[in-house]
Design a protein around this nucleic acid. Structure first.
Lengths: 140, 140
DNA sequence: CTGACTGCAAATAGTTTGCATGACG
DNA sequence: CGTCATGCAAACTATTTGCAGTCAG
């Protein structure tokens, strides 16, 4: 949280109470949140905040690389605090939405092989696992 | 194309000229197409077709597992004919949108490891590579 | 102070739905 | 011929933008 505040200031953004609230909520939560869900949570505590501000804050945070998008299922976007800096992937629970990060992925070799075979210059990859976490499996 | 027609009929769907046109266009194209892009192409040849029909056809085709969604970049959905049946992934060109399928992915071991460490029951995974194809790299 | 930020309302973009008409099987 | 499919328009949902007032630095 404090780290985020520092980065914001250093990048020339103002640290308003609204932004504080949004960041705090997103940092506190271990699930991925849609803009609407995040707004609902923030709004519960700070009545005066608007959905638009949530969108705008998400935009800033994305630009600074502090949060990242989760793809998976559904039409809406969904965001998550980027905890480990650098390369990582997500394991998403389809039951409760909880997300576990992991950094390890041994696909460099596959990447090289594909690159060789297809002539593509591969920039990045997207890897997500979808499953059900321990608690959700028990709950059935 | 004929295979698709058969599956449609067997599943109790009617084979209208519109559906024919949509399927034919999607089968012909090696890129992933958004509903709007697909509509534009189909509409060029068959003036009377509506965007809504494209959406509805895509819905049917998805239900039958004949096409699949590409995630990657952008907000819009994007569809692609499912050529190899069964498990496969995509390599998407950020320049021209061309998509190369590949089936090989050695992440079963990673999947098992994650499953063991986190207690998740992993159902599926999403793996996409993003890069620039040979032609697009040349074109710069 | 002043430029960046907020909140509202309205505009957009993408997608879905209701309904009368049309055509596949 | 009955039923499912189509096309239009209108509804809906998610997101973006314009603008006047407000506030952090």
């Amino acid at each position: 949280m404090e780290k985020v505040a520092t980065i914001l200031r250093q990048s020339g953004y103002k640290l308003t109470p609204q932004r504080r609230a949004v960041v705090s909520e997103i940092a506190m939560c271990h699930e991925h949140l849609t803009p609407a869900a995040l707004y609902e949570r923030v709004h519960r505590k700070h009545k005066k905040i608007g959905l638009v501000t949530v969108y705008r804050t998400l935009e800033v945070l994305t630009e600074l690389g502090l949060i990242c998008q989760v793809h998976g299922e559904g039409v809406q976007r969904s965001y998550l605090l980027r905890r480990p800096s650098g390369h990582h992937h997500h394991l998403v629970c389809s039951g409760c939405g909880k997300v576990v990060d992991f950094a390890q992925c041994n696909i460099t070799r596959l990447e090289q092989k594909l690159s060789r075979e297809t002539g593509f210059a591969i920039d990045s990859h997207l890897l997500e696992f979808l499953g059900r976490c321990r608690e959700c499996r028990r709950a059935v």
